[in-house]
Structure formats: structure tokens, C-alpha cells
């Protein structure tokens, strides 16, 4: 149970659930939640490699810390964009934002 492939599997599953949510949710915030899931899956993946394969296990943790920091920054900006979009089209349904329809 405590092998690399288990954790990689968990990470892949988290990532894929995030993909599913991203492609299927109708509201922007729902997509944002799915993106958080994807980021977490990637973090777990990094930490797994760090635990089992990396020569210096500190590096992986530093990297994961930075991923979390960037996720936070990205969430801030995404939320502000969502608020801006909402003020424009008065809904957070992504299917309403079809200006690029050709």
C-alpha cells in the first residue's frame, strides 16, 4: 500500500476528477473549484515523487509550498475576474459568455 504507484494513482484520480469538473460545471466558481482540485492533484504527485524518488527530499516540499502560494494568487485573481464578469453579464454561467462565437 505504501508504494509510489498508489500515491500516483491518487494524484491522477484527483487530477482527472478536477478535469471532469472543469469541463462540465456551468458556473465559473464551480470551474474554479475544479481547478483547485487539479492543482492539488499535481501537488500530491510532486510530493509522491519527492518521497520516493528525489535525492533531496526538501526540494519537493519547497516546490509544493510554492505551488500553494501560486494557487492562492491565482484564486484571488480568478475571483476578481469572476466578479468583473458577473457585473458585465449579470450571471456566472459560463455558457452566457459567448462573445467569441463564430
Amino acid at each position: 500500500m505504501n508504494s509510489l504507484t498508489t500515491y500516483l494513482f491518487i494524484a491522477a484520480a484527483l487530477f482527472v476528477i478536477g478535469v471532469f469538473g472543469l469541463l462540465q460545471r456551468r458556473s465559473l466558481i464551480g470551474m474554479l473549484i475544479a481547478i483547485e482540485l487539479m492543482l492539488n492533484g499535481a501537488s500530491v504527485n510532486f510530493m509522491a515523487f519527492n518521497r520516493f524518488l528525489a535525492p533531496d527530499p526538501i526540494i519537493g516540499q519547497v516546490y509544493t509550498l510554492f505551488i500553494m502560494g501560486f494557487a492562492a494568487a491565482e484564486t484571488i485573481i480568478a475571483l476578481s475576474i469572476i466578479i468583473a464578469v458577473f457585473r458585465r453579464i449579470h450571471s456566472i454561467n459560463i455558457e452566457q459568455a459567448r462573445n467569441l462565437r463564430g
Partner: peptide, 17 residues
Amino acid sequence: LSFVQSGMLQYNLMVMF
């Protein structure tokens, strides 16, 4: 072909993934 340009972000994302 213009059906491809539906303006729907998530369909584009599907294709991308």
C-alpha cells in the same frame, strides 16, 4: 466548420485536454 467556433469555453477545453 463554423459550428466549431461555438464560443463555449468548455468545448474548447475538452478538445485541448
